[in-house]
């Protein structure tokens, strides 16, 4: 398997070169952000205020990590289901967000924004959270500390393994991958 290594930040031009199905290893800094913090960010935008983080060329990881135990930079930290952030994501992509890491299907409005501005949706393996935490070498809270695990963290990651699920042309591994396997399985075992 060919694994492409990417150094973050990721520009929207770079995001456009990634293709659904590619395995990628990410190194650099990412932000964590899930339901409650997304809601606050969008409320700020609605009020015409600046965001507490500059998200241009940034990658957001949808995760609420477990607390770090002694000797660990972070607790287990696998992806959460992304559709809950669908209502918010297009606004952030418009502001320059170039990548999202999560798991699960996305709404067409998110895919349309990804196509329009050049952004990519990466998948990490849900439930492989202990393994994933090994690629996170540093974690610090950036804002919304009161939200606990849902606060926005800045993670430093090294060779964080992801797959491109949906690319900036709208190619969707969640459609093509299962369809190919379904055809195979139903011809093989269809009897």
């Amino acid at each position: 398997m060919i694994i492409r290594k990417i150094q973050l930040p990721l520009t929207q031009e770079q995001a456009r070169t990634l293709r659904a199905g590619e395995t990628v290893c990410l190194t650099g800094a990412i932000y964590t952000d899930r339901d409650a913090a997304h809601k606050r960010l969008i409320e700020l935008l609605d009020q015409g205020k600046d965001l507490p983080i500059d998200i241009k060329d940034q990658v957001i990881y949808y995760v609420g990590p477990a607390p770090a135990s002694p000797g660990h930079a972070v607790g287990s930290a696998g992806p959460t289901t992304s559709y809950r952030m669908d209502a918010y994501a297009p606004r952030l992509i418009e502001l320059g967000l170039s990548g999202m890491i999560g798991k699960g299907k996305r709404d067409q409005s998110v895919i349309d924004a990804m196509k329009k501005y050049g952004a990519v949706y990466f998948g990490a393996v849900g439930g492989a959270a202990a393994l994933i935490s090994r690629s996170i070498i540093k974690s610090e809270v950036v804002c919304y500390e009161d939200l606990g695990s849902e606060a926005i963290h800045r993670f430093e990651i090294r060779d964080f393994p992801v797959v491109v699920l949906i690319d900036s042309e709208g190619n969707n591994l969640y459609e093509t991958g299962p369809a190919a396997c379904r055809a195979l399985l139903q011809s093989e075992k269809g009897e």
Partner: peptide, 9 residues
């Protein structure tokens, strides 16, 4: 055909 992680299998 959904497969592990839903990417086919």
């Amino acid at each position: 055909g959904i497969g592990p992680a839903g990417i086919g299998g």
